[in-house]
Every structure is written in structure tokens, then in C-alpha cells.
Amino acid sequence: MQRSTLGDVTYNWIIGLLAGLAVLILIGPVLIVIAISFTTSQTLKFPPPGLSLRWYVELFDSVRSAQIHTAALNSVWVAGTATLIGAVLSVLAALAITRVARPSARFLEASFLSPLVLPTLSYGLAALMFFSVLGIRPSLNLLIAGHLVVIAPFIFRTTLASLTQLDPVLLEASANLGASRVYGFRRITLPLIAPGIAAGCFLAFISSMDNVPVSLFLSNARTSMLPIRMWGMMESTLDVRIAAIAGVLILATLILMIVMDRLTGLTKRVSG
């Protein structure tokens, strides 16, 4: 008994320490970047010698940060359009194959989800070669097509999960009561799966805004995207404006996340 108690104490200590380290590693870097974005200094020194908004002023300066603004607008346009098209296509596809046990349906499901685990960098290069063989010049529309393929699985997955949880009795009841199928879809299915679709759209939009592997090959100087632009800034000079961009993006994501949480219970959905 003595030995097992000692073992239990070390267990509690080791698990507690490692969990504490995990929390520190998860949240520390984010907090450090936010702190640095308010620095008065030209360097990325932490802790900052003094606090100011100078890098945010610099970031929002329409002349000095014009390239960043263009890249940010391109990214939002591509992410928004790809998410919208992806939502329509994914919801239709999820409706078609949900509750179908046939192997062909399972094959389609696996295919539609495959971009989630396949290395998208390989896909980015494949897309570049494909469009160049077809002789299509790089444009934002190409980026939308490329992003669409890699972000649609997020919407497809959450929609499919919502549809699987939907009780078929509800639709049978509505049909028995004389409701048409269109009416049943609009009044019963859609409201019940809407939170799932919304959660998927949120993840898809974030993932497109953050996409590097596809944009790396499909974007160019004319169609620059925010993550690629930031990478360029990191490679050349360690510009403190990157920290300010981080601050703006984190704030925007937080607002979006809180709104989504209120609407759909995203945190519950993501963690199961």
C-alpha cells in the first residue's frame, strides 16, 4: 500500500506539471505576440520597453501598408467566395449520401474528406501544373477554385454529422401530416442542420484565410494573399507590423468565434 500511494503522488505531480506546461505552451506564444504588437520599440524585444499603438497606426496607414491591405482584401474575398460555393456544394452532397450504406456512398464520402489528410502542398503544385497546362493565367478565380477543394471538406463533415443525428421520424411525421418534401426540407431538415453548416463554414473560412500550401503556388505578385505576404515580411525584415496584423486577426477571430458560439455552440460541437 505504501508504494502505491507514493506512486499516486508522483502520478498527480507529473500529470499536473505536464498539463501546466501544455497550457503554457498553448497560450504563451499568443500572449507574447499580442504584447509585442503594442511595443514602442523597433525590435521584437519581450517584454516591450514601453506600450504604444504606433504599429497599429502604421498597419492601418493606407500608403505605407498598401500591399498588406491588398493582400488582406484578396484573402477575405477568396475565403468568403470559396466558403459560400463550398457550403452549397457540400450541403447538397451531404444530403445525397447521408444514411446510404452502399459502398459507392462510402467511397464518395472518403473522397470528399480526403483533402483533410492528404498533403495540400502536393495538391498546390498539382493545381499549378494543371492550370499552366490549360494555359490559364493566375487570378483570384483560380485561387477560389483551389481553396474550394481544400476547405469544402470542413463543411461537408459537419453537415454530414448533423444529418446523421437528425431523427428520421420527424420527417416521416411531417410527410404523414401532408407536408410536401420541399416543405419538410425547408421547415425541418434545414433548421436542424443549420448550426452544423454554420460551424463548418466558420472552420472553412478560417482555414482559407490561413491557407499557405495552395496559395504558395497559385498566387503571384498581382494576386497576393495575406499569409504569403506575411511570410515574405518574416523572411526579409522582422517587421513589427506582423505582430499588429496578428493582433487584428486574433481580435477578429475572437469576435467571430464568440458570435458563432452564441449561434451554434461551436465549442461544444468541436469538442464533441
Binding site: P29, M209, D210, V212, M230, I242
Partner: peptide
Amino acid sequence: TSVVIRTFAWIVI
């Protein structure tokens, strides 16, 4: 938080 920003944070650290 963007992957690029997380990478940036680790450069600082």
C-alpha cells in the same frame, strides 16, 4: 491563430 503568426511567435521566443 494563423499558422504564420504562430511561427512568428516562436521566432520571437
